[in-house]
Amino acid sequence: MNNVKMTVNGKAVSRDVPDTTLLSEFLREDLRLTGTHVGCDTSQCGACVVHVDGRAVKSCTTLAASLDGADVTTIEGIANGGDLHPMQAAFNTHHGLQCGFCTPGMIMSGIDMVNRFQADGKDLTEEAIREELEGNICRCTGYHNIVKAIEDAAGTMADMAKAAE
């Protein structure tokens, strides 16, 4: 058992967890944040993507015990009160989801790639989005509308960043 203290979606949490507990299990079972999904066992599908200290991480291959002091954000933590995050809104507008199971991971990966490209001053093209989604599998949408949603949200996020300057 390890005592782990972390911030999850802005709230301080402290739990004793076994060495083997994965972050995905910790979020789903200990904190009952079930929006983070597990779709495979080889770190391929990306349904479990969350942000750890601002970076996208596959929670199914991260040990909870290794994250003492970390700041974790899950799909449940990205909306601002009643206002959806632009990435969430874009997935709805562009029909970027069908069954919804891969969606939390897609949205978390989408936000991460937009943030990284904007920080680097790089253009997030359709080709770049498709390459960046290498670690996220969707079986329903054929990716077409996911790509459109991320493209659109990237624009909104850039506008918001500019407005905040």
Binding site: G35, T74, F101
Partner: peptide, 17 residues
């Protein structure tokens, strides 16, 4: 636009697991 999306994009879908 889909009515059911909100719960899925906010992580509030209710799947069996």
């Amino acid at each position: 636009a889909r009515k059911e999306d909100k719960r899925f994009i906010t992580g509030k879908g209710k799947y069996t697991d």
